[in-house]
Structure formats: structure tokens, C-alpha cells
């Protein structure tokens, strides 16, 4: 695939693409993905109730759940990398929004007891 990098000649154009990236990231992660994952979880639970409770069915359902949970992260990474090589300022906007949200999470982390890995494992049945 031959990706062509957009050349920015105007600072206003750069700003527009940057803010487009920010809005795109927020739109995807605050609106689209939570709605999709809610719908998918409803779909998965209705599938799960229709299946027998064998280990194979449970494993398949859990793998499907993890794969669907992973999808938003992969779409985020894919879009950032794609825009990095086509419209750099959009990628920068998405990265800035992602980075700001992660930094906010780290700041909130000082107000919460962080669960160690053993606790997370037990919480998930591991």
C-alpha cells in the first residue's frame, strides 16, 4: 500500500487536522466504542444462554469476548499509525487526546489503591 503524506502549507490547516484528530479519538472512545461494546455484550450473553455450559463453549465465549474487547484498542492503534503516514496532524491530535486521557488516569491513580496482578487475576477467575 502506497501511503502519501499530506503536505501542510497553512498553519490553519494543521490546526484543523489536529482538532479533527482530537474529536475523532474522543468520538470513537467516549461514544462509539462504549455503545458497541454494550451491544456486543448483550449479543454475547444471549449467545451464551443458547449454548450448553460445556468448557468448550465457555472458552469460545471468553475468547470472543477478549477479541471484541481488544478490537477498539487495535482500531485506535491502526488509525493513529495510518494517519501518521497520511495526515500527520490528525495522528498527532489523536495521540494528544490518548496521551491526555492516560495522564489523567495516572493522576487519578494517586487517589486509588492500585490492584496488584494477583488481585486482578483472582477478580477474573484466574
Amino acid at each position: 500500500m502506497n501511503l502519501i503524506q499530506k503536505e501542510y502549507t497553512d498553519p490553519a490547516e494543521k490546526r484543523k487536522d489536529f482538532w479533527f484528530g482530537v474529536v475523532l479519538w474522543v468520538g470513537l472512545n467516549v461514544l462509539a466504542f462504549p455503545i458497541c461494546s454494550f451491544l456486543v455484550s448483550i449479543g454475547l450473553s444471549s449467545v451464551a444462554t443458547g449454548l450448553d455450559s460445556s468448557d468448550t463453549s465457555n472458552t469460545l465465549i471468553s475468547i470472543a469476548g477478549v477479541a471484541l474487547g481488544l478490537l477498539p484498542l487495535l482500531i485506535n492503534i491502526g488509525l493513529i499509525v495510518y494517519f501518521a503516514f497520511t495526515r500527520r496532524q490528525v495522528a498527532l491530535g489523536m495521540l494528544a487526546a490518548f496521551g491526555a486521557a492516560l495522564l489523567l488516569t495516572l493522576c487519578l491513580g494517586i487517589l486509588f489503591a492500585v490492584a496488584c496482578l494477583g488481585i486482578i487475576g483472582a477478580y477474573n477467575g484466574g
Binding site: F33, G69, L102, L106, L108, A113, V114, C116, L117, I120
Partner: peptide, 23 residues
């Protein structure tokens, strides 16, 4: 490092932004 049972927490966007989950 620790096994597939951690995947639902560490490979999701929700887990990424949960301040209670270790870094």
C-alpha cells in the same frame, strides 16, 4: 508474562483508563 486470564483487563480500553489497574 502472566497469562491469558489477564487479557480482559489489560487488553481493553476500559482497563487502560481504570486508575485501579496497575500500570
Amino acid at each position: 508474562f502472566n497469562g491469558f486470564e489477564y487479557a480482559p483487563v489489560v487488553l481493553s480500553m476500559a482497563g487502560m483508563f481504570d486508575p485501579r489497574v496497575g500500570p
